[in-house]
Nucleic acid binder design. Structure first.
Lengths: 137, 137
DNA sequence: GCCTTATAGTTACCTAGGTAATTAATTTCA
DNA sequence: TGAAATTAATTACCTAGGTAACTATAAGGC
């Protein structure tokens, strides 16, 4: 019965990686959950909170909190949409000007975490994860 | 730059699996974090909280909370050790008598989550995860 | 022996993410 | 058109896990 071990190892890996990312982002005043939102917004431009939830597979309430913190820090603004229920979220100029710094911080920590792990293994792992996840969702 | 995708996929997988386990355990009145403790205690017999933290790679405060809930539910007891700072934790008879039910619940949900994922892939994924984790810790 | 340091556990407080219930705006449909 | 159902976002409250500060016990150095 290998299932228990797979789940446990995956859980530990996930926590470890998140912790390391948070540690690296701390000097920048950001948390990993905030970075995830910023990263998506940088690529997509403007999204409703619902769209952000769908992209990141997160429920609405935690998304509301993460965005409100980003708004308070001045990194994100919420614009009312045609549909008045929606809030269109986008990065501020301040966030755009800092993006490359943040991107470097995250790239560096990620590369450090992967540095001893051969690229072929990375690709294989990624492929397996993606395949499994696709079956589950 | 594959790193961001690996981290994101792994994070999503971990959340999804935990959510499914919690859902399955709900009728039994248990949470996945409690099950993790019970599972270790069943195999090891009696452990101090420190040892439990080390086995599960969890900090002391969340372990205290999880154990206190298990104590309140009558599934775990804390015995003072030779070293009076320590608390030796072990399963109660009540927990032992229910263990096989819980074990079946978790096995079933785990197997369900893995049912479409070939066993060779499971083994490969587990191997890669374990290898990576070993490098990180 | 005594004082300092280390360790086990707890408490308080933080982020991350989940469900349930609520509100306001939009759709649907009879 | 007007009532009912749906949807986007929020609020309140829960578990999960992290750090910092604290308490009580144990271990070491003098």
């Amino acid at each position: 019965m290998i299932s228990h071990e797979i789940f446990h190892t995956l859980h530990q890996l996930s926590r470890h990686l998140t912790n390391k990312q948070n540690e690296a982002l701390k000097p920048a005043g950001l948390y990993s959950s905030q970075w995830a939102v910023i990263y998506v917004l940088k690529q997509k431009g403007s999204l409703t909170q619902k769209q952000l939830c769908d992209y990141l597979s997160v429920e609405a309430p935690p998304m509301t909190r993460t965005i409100q913190r980003l708004v308070k820090q001045g990194y994100v603004k919420q614009l009312p949409g045609q549909d008045k229920r929606e809030k269109h979220v986008q990065l501020t100029d301040e966030a755009l000007s800092q993006y490359s710094n943040w991107e470097k911080i995250v790239s560096d920590v990620n590369n450090g975490l992967l540095s001893q792990f051969p690229e072929s293994s990375q690709k294989e792992l990624f492929h397996l994860q993606k395949t499994w996840l696709k079956q589950l969702v």
